[in-house]
Nucleic acid binder design. Structure first.
Lengths: 118, 118
DNA sequence: CGTATATTCACCCATATGGATGAATATAGT
DNA sequence: ACTATATTCATCCATATGGGTGAATATACG
């Protein structure tokens, strides 16, 4: 079952468990950006942004290219494939559940039409 | 972009960011289990297990059915669909990256065959 | 009714997190 | 050299986390 490094998945899911960091990832999906650009976009301090970026780097989701005094951040979605792969195992469970729900709805509609009144 | 509740995704990704909790989910994918059964399977105390379960419940990944003095836990993978959906947006980025890597490998192989020595 | 079992509650502890501020470092521009 | 800009480092604070232990609660069993 655990073909992925547990520690890596810890960092990966942990990095994605914060709304600010998910917003940073969404922003970087549009284009690379500097730390200041990210900070101004999310109304949190520059230092907080810097910390979030470090968390994202540790998870491997963001890479940094230092160009002079500017640090350019890039999205690196690669590791997300591991998270998606881990989730994939469970897809059968939620699709089964949806299928069961659909059955229920169909059956209920049938009863509403042809079943006993109230 | 954020069609999912940010708070929900926080809890969801947060719940999946711990190896013990992922192991609990994997165990519950096989069959329902009681708290004690889960605790004995993972060599952590009953109370730690109880806490992990609460985290999983808060994320909606586990449901509890109290039967007498026993609490039977069940996997509820439904919310994972949201996490998977969130990740889906980024699939293009990691597949693009894999495609780029493949291009590079092919190009390199070509150079190794026909390019200048050294 | 008394006792064993299943689980949670109330704490305690060490560490991590998210946020802030002020100082330090590094680079660009003049 | 001086100054402005970009970013991190060092702290501090409140809160959360993961782990533990011992007591409390609830239910089953004899």
């Amino acid at each position: 079952m655990d073909e992925y490094s547990a520690h890596h998945l810890d960092d990966l899911f942990g990095a994605m468990s914060d709304a600010t960091r998910r917003a940073i990832l969404a922003r970087l999906a549009q284009s690379d950006a500097r730390v200041t650009e990210l900070a101004s976009a999310f109304t949190i301090s520059l230092n907080s942004t810097s910390k979030h970026i470090r968390v994202l780097e540790r998870a491997g989701l963001v890479t940094r290219s230092v160009q002079g005094r500017e640090h350019v951040l890039s999205l690196n979605a690669g590791p997300m494939a591991e998270a998606a792969g881990w989730l994939e195992f469970y897809r059968q469970f939620w699709t089964d559940r949806l299928a069961a729900l659909e059955d229920f709805v169909v059956k209920k509609r049938h009863l509403d039409k042809h079943g006993s009144k109230q």
